[in-house]
Amino acid sequence: MQSVLNTVKGTALNVAEYLTPVLKESKFRETGVLTPEEFVAAGDHLVHHCPTWQWAAGDETKTKPYLPKDKQFLITRNVPCYRRCKQMEYVGEETLVEEESGDGGWVETHQLNDDGTTQLEEKICELTMDETKDEMHTPDSDKSAPGDAVDGEDEDDDEAIDMDAFEESGMLDLVDPAVATTTRKLEVEAKASPAAAAATTEAFGDSVLHTRTYDLHISYDKYYQTPRLWVVGYDEQRKPLTVEQMYEDVSQDHAKKTVTMESHPHLPGPNMASVHPCRHADIMKKIIQTVEEGGGQLGVHLYLIIFLKFVQTVIPTIEYDFTQNFNMS
């Protein structure tokens, strides 16, 4: 139901966005919002300090005039995501970052130690192994073509198309000794995994079966005048994840509420998962206030770094680069 509301609201907001004038004056300090120029400055800072991020131009037909042509949005690709959210939820203590909880309260479910690892690593590893078998039987794991896994679940109502009829003989007549027959290592690993699961934790090591990867985008939301985070995930065979699968990587407090499926401003194609920006400015304002109370000052160029830190509570298992530090006091 929430998602229907979101869709309706989303459409209305598209109209509103169209009518909203581009923010000209900096209101960062008072309200926590950004002008497009400030977004670009903060983006440049992020790209400079976290080299996995880069600017992207997006679809040429969707270029927004208030942003430079080659700096439409920010992107980082192939970010690893080693485990599902539900595997870590309720394992660790949650800390409420904000007092007024309500629907959109930011809950920190995941705390990193200084060295970037979690103290819960071992427990999680055990859980991972237990669930290996379930994960093996994802419906789209071997049948569907790369790319069509956007659907994944029900292909039964499609009439079966006989692709064999398209095969061409005669083209293999040319003997080509220089072609290697290759099997992707990942697939080999996946097949061997029940054995691997039974083996020691060490052998399991880094090649955990369900390593998904995510592409993260940060666009500028003209209506809310804040950055907006988009995520698109792929499974270990680099097939796009379904919406439901993607919600497994979103903190359950946020799935379908803070994280919604909407159309990306710079991309053609299906709706993408996005962290709804309606509360970003409020949170940013709180952070600015905290810093200023402590006698410090927060430059607008740090906006995206801070932004990435607070959206981490929504997607705690996606290990993107937000390593830059800033001082709260």
Partner: peptide, 14 residues
């Protein structure tokens, strides 16, 4: 592994 095209069904997102 045969000489032939591939097909992708995009119904669910289109």
């Amino acid at each position: 592994g045969k000489m032939g095209p591939r097909m992708v069904c995009m119904r669910d997102s289109m």
